[in-house]
Design a protein around this nucleic acid. Structure first.
Length: 575
DNA sequence: AACAACGAAACA
DNA sequence: TGTTTCGTTGTT
């Protein structure tokens, strides 16, 4: 149970400070506004205030009020302060702090820290402040000014620093005043070893008596050891435990916790001793306390250092023996039970084969398409140009329409849009390279990747050859060449007709050969990728299958049939 | 739990 | 409006 600690104030002698309070300028005691009949608002106009008891004792004490806050008053105030004009923020603050120390949730108003008016300029909090050139991230009061009683512990001067420089004896002034901390901080403070006089002595003795060796001693030793240390330890443990039980209200008795563990440790230690003794009886050599005989079959030699054997041969002999002994059994075991992984592997392989077949079929189809296209293009080149159609086409166009280029986003006339976009694309595309360290090697494939070597980056271009503006330019079109694009009906149905416009003038089918070739080539590349992927899968699967039931695997693993019924069911289903 | 960071109240 | 410093929150 906690006794109500912490400072008490006012006529009511309560510790509550979360309301408006006013300080007596005579006894410096603090009073609740409500208890002494002073509202917060009213207090604003009070300049000097004395508590009822002080006034009783000394009737001459008079509560003084401020005049209305006027300009004149402000002026008089500044006159009172000689350094008025040249005052820095620091000095202004000092005045503020110095004149009347406020009591707050984090300031007792009485300790050295609270009374301090200057920032140390050295602590981390000061260094963080803007006035000391800091980033103002931490935004905490100078450590030297953190209240010794109410400020959060972590904000106060750090322990090491305090002991190093002996800056201040924490809480000494407070203890003299007979005041104690609030409960919140009490919890923090408990972590510190707060000894009373006799405890301190014991603590010192405990430290001196060899708290440096915390290893387990045997009980005999313990009995012999000076009672002083035991006493000291006991004091400490009891203190700790009391606290723990108080906090946790744990069920298990702490004393019962400690002893058995000690026993176990001792037992283990004894056992270890016994083991090493037995080894010693064997009559071999002693290495670091242990005696070793070669583990080779039938060998009685001593081991080599850091080895279980006397020689390589012994090691090999033992290994060979193991294989002869274990392997046949394992092979038999392996053959007895069906291997699910093997079965699954076979199925996977089947699937991969099927997919490979499909991919190959598709590849031949694409190759066929490739040749067909070349045929069409060759055929188209032989068409004659029809000049009269040119004219009619030019007339029908709507000159007001505009489309935006997908590359440069400029508005362009739809008539020339294709041409523009194609060139725009080529322009931007040729600015970047797209290569790999290795040339493409696909057997039986014609014209896929550009594969031009760039000696600067030591890479091979990996664009489709037909689409690479960086390494191949579109050939110049002769004036009399026909467009020759196969005409279609309903988008997909070929009519058998060809565009008979002059190639230079046909905007509708601009570089149609290139696009068609790219279409076919892209598909071919995709099929090749697919084939490659399938090949990789097959290879992995095959390695896994050949490694399964290999020598190493059989020696290292075995399948234990815990439940023969399950195995039977599975084998019946699988077979 | 300690710490850093930061919003915001309080104040001049 | 700027400064100081508190409480809260997220991170280590």
């Amino acid at each position: 149970m906690k006794t109500p600690r912490g400072p008490v104030y006012c006529v009511c002698r309560k510790s509550d400070i979360n309301c408006f309070m006013i300080g007596c300028d005579s006894c410096t005691e603090w009073f609740h506004g409500n208890c002494v009949g002073v509202s917060e608002k009213a207090a604003k106009s009070i300049r000097v205030w004395f508590c009822p008891s002080c006034r009783d004792k000394d009737p001459s004490l008079e509560i003084k009020y401020r005049l209305k806050k006027t300009k004149e008053e402000k002026e008089t105030e500044t006159e009172d302060q000689p350094d008025g004009d040249g005052s820095s923020t620091q000095t202004k603050m000092d005045r503020r702090r110095g004149s009347q120390i406020k009591r707050s949730a984090r300031m007792c108003g009485e300790c050295d820290a609270c009374l301090r008016t200057e920032d140390c300029a050295l602590c981390d909090f000061c260094k963080d402040m803007k006035k000391f050139g800091g980033p103002n991230k931490i935004r905490q009061k100078c450590r030297m000014r953190q209240c010794e009683v109410r400020a959060r512990k972590m904000l106060r001067v750090k322990e090491e620093e305090m002991s190093r420089s002996g800056i201040r004896g924490r809480g000494l002034s407070r203890k003299g005043a007979g005041l104690q901390t609030e409960d919140e901080d009490d919890d923090d403070d408990d972590d510190e070893v707060a000894f009373s006089g006799s405890e301190l002595e014991l603590y010192e003795q405990y430290k001196a008596a060899g708290y440096q060796d915390l290893v387990w001693h045997s009980e005999e030793e313990d009995a012999q050891s000076d009672s002083l240390r035991k006493k000291a330890v006991k004091v400490k443990h009891v203190k700790r435990r009391e606290k723990k039980t108080e906090k946790k209200k744990s069920v298990s008795a702490p004393k019962a916790e400690v002893k058995p563990r000690r026993h176990k440790a001792k037992q283990r230690h004894k056992e270890r001793l016994r083991h090493s003794e037995r080894a010693g009886e064997g009559g071999a050599k002693e290495v670091g306390g242990a005696l070793r005989q070669c583990q080779g079959p039938g060998c009685v030699q001593l081991t080599r250092t850091n080895s279980k054997y006397c020689s390589e041969e012994c090691g090999m002999k033992l290994a060979a023996n193991r294989i002869y002994e274990i392997l046949p059994q394992r092979i038999q075991q392996w053959q007895q039970s069906p291997c699910v992984a093997e079965e699954m592997g076979r199925r996977q392989l089947e699937r991969i084969r099927k997919e490979q077949q499909a991919a190959r079929l598709r590849l031949t189809l694409m190759e066929k398409r490739f040749h067909e296209l070349e045929g069409i293009i060759a055929n188209a080149k032989q068409q004659q140009v029809h000049h009269h159609e040119e004219v009619t086409e030019g007339e029908g166009d709507d000159t007001d329409l505009q489309v935006f280029c997908v590359s440069c986003s400029h508005p362009v006339n739809p008539k020339v849009a294709l041409r523009h976009m194609e060139r725009c694309y080529a322009k931007y595309e040729s600015q970047t390279s797209f290569g790999s360290m290795y040339p493409t090697r696909i057997e039986g494939a014609t014209r896929l990747f550009c594969d031009v070597y760039n000696p600067q980056s030591k890479t091979y271009c990996k664009r489709l050859q037909v689409l690479c503006p960086e390494h191949s330019r579109d050939p110049k079109v002769p004036a009399d060449e026909v467009c020759g694009c196969p005409l279609v009906k309903d988008v997909f149905e070929p009519t058998g007709e060809f565009c008979r416009l002059s190639k230079r003038k046909c905007n509708k089918h601009y570089s149609w050969e290139k696009l068609r070739r790219a279409e076919v080539d892209l598909e071919r590349v995709r099929v090749w990728y697919k084939l490659d992927e399938l090949f990789e899968q097959e290879r992995n699967l095959r390695t896994a299958m050949t490694n399964r039931a290999g020598l190493l695997a059989l020696m290292l693993h075995q399948t234990i049939q815990h439940d023969p019924i399950t195995t039977d069911l599975r084998s019946a289903k699988d077979r």
